[in-house]
């Protein structure tokens, strides 16, 4: 889905992903983890990508046959000059807005893998992967 980079869409994005993932019968904890990670990634796009101008955020969700959920969130905004620096816990470029600088740290903690690809001036794509626990291990 594609939506505007407005802060009101942060709830829309994480709720839409959670609703889609429900068909895999996730645990409450897993749904919470996914919602949190999506919220972080989308908030990054809203806060940083377009510098006060409203741009578009694209979000794709799919899953594999072994219940790995793959979520891709991308923007065509300013891009990230130094991805390593951006991913450091507590690093933030906007402390005045009470940003904790924990976005990527949270994504990494709540997902199995986080991949960031970015081209300055072209945009950023974050890919989150999370393996859901098998619900019926003896089946």
């Amino acid at each position: 889905m594609v939506f505007d980079s407005l802060s009101s869409n942060e709830a829309f994005a994480r709720s839409a992903v959670a609703a889609f993932v429900m068909q895999l019968d996730p645990t409450i904890g897993e749904i919470g983890d996914i919602k949190t990670a999506v919220s972080e990634a989308v908030t990054n796009c809203v806060v940083h990508a377009y510098h006060g101008i409203t741009g578009k955020i694209r979000l794709n969700v799919r899953f594999t046959s072994d219940h790995i959920v793959i979520i891709r969130i991308s923007d065509k905004g300013c891009g990230i000059e130094d991805i390593h620096k951006a991913m450091e816990p507590l690093y933030t470029t906007s402390p005045e807005e009470d940003r904790a600088g924990l976005g990527f740290a949270v994504m990494q903690s709540f997902c199995d893998s986080v991949n960031v690809r970015s081209v300055p001036g072209r945009g950023t794509t974050v890919t989150l992967k999370k393996k859901l626990s098998p619900r019926y291990p003896n089946a």
């Binding site: 919470g32 919602k35 908030t43 009470d98 940003r99 904790a100 976005g103 949270v106």
Partner: peptide, 13 residues
């Protein structure tokens, strides 16, 4: 019912 790292920023602030 839900909190992302914005809640941490809120508390620290």
């Amino acid at each position: 019912s839900f909190m992302d790292s914005s809640g941490i920023g809120l508390i620290m602030g």
